[in-house]
Amino acid sequence: MDKRRSLKISSQMQKELSKILAEDINDPRLSENVIVSITEVEVTNDLSFADIYVSVLGDESKKESVIEAFEDAKGFIKRLIGERMRLRSMPKFRFKYDNSIERGVYMDKLIAETIAKDEKNAGNRED
């Protein structure tokens, strides 16, 4: 299959999964005291697998329970994706934890701390 087609399918699947997460899934593990987002979907060229990267802002136990919730809802999600995207063959979903947003928040914090220290040191030199 053409790489462009699998990229289009990946993009569309990410949009649909985000809608499903926001509107159709009522699992408390995905909504209580945790922020969940679908950061990326990678569909293989032969449409056999879809790696779904899930970002979770919450403690470690929440992260594990979110992946479990997605695994438990896999059949429901596949059915909804099938109805909305009308693919001839539905890829097998593999949910994976993505910590890129968490890493970005941490890097922003470090940058802000460094800027504050630099400004403080610059103020001390002027005195």
Rank of each mutant, 00 (worst) to 15 (best):
I52R: 02
V66A: 10
I81T: 09
G82L: 06
E71H: 00
K74D: 02
G75N: 03
T44K: 11
S55H: 02
I38P: 04
K63C: 07
Y53C: 02
I81C: 04
G82Q: 05
E64W: 04
A50I: 09
D59H: 11
V66W: 02
I38G: 09
S55Q: 01
E83G: 14
T44M: 06
G58D: 03
N33Y: 10
A50K: 07
V36F: 01
F49Q: 07
I52C: 06
E64K: 15
E60Y: 03
F70C: 02
I67S: 03
S55T: 12
I35M: 14
E42V: 14
E83R: 14
V36S: 04
G75E: 01
A50G: 12
V43Y: 09
I67C: 05
I77K: 01
Y53M: 08
I67D: 04
R84I: 14
S37F: 04
S61Y: 04
A69L: 01
D46S: 10
I38L: 05
I38E: 04
E83S: 13
I38W: 04
D59N: 15
T39G: 09
I35V: 14
S31I: 13
L80R: 12
E68I: 03
V41I: 08
K78S: 14
F49S: 02
I67L: 11
F70R: 02
L80M: 12
E42G: 10
S48M: 10
R84H: 13
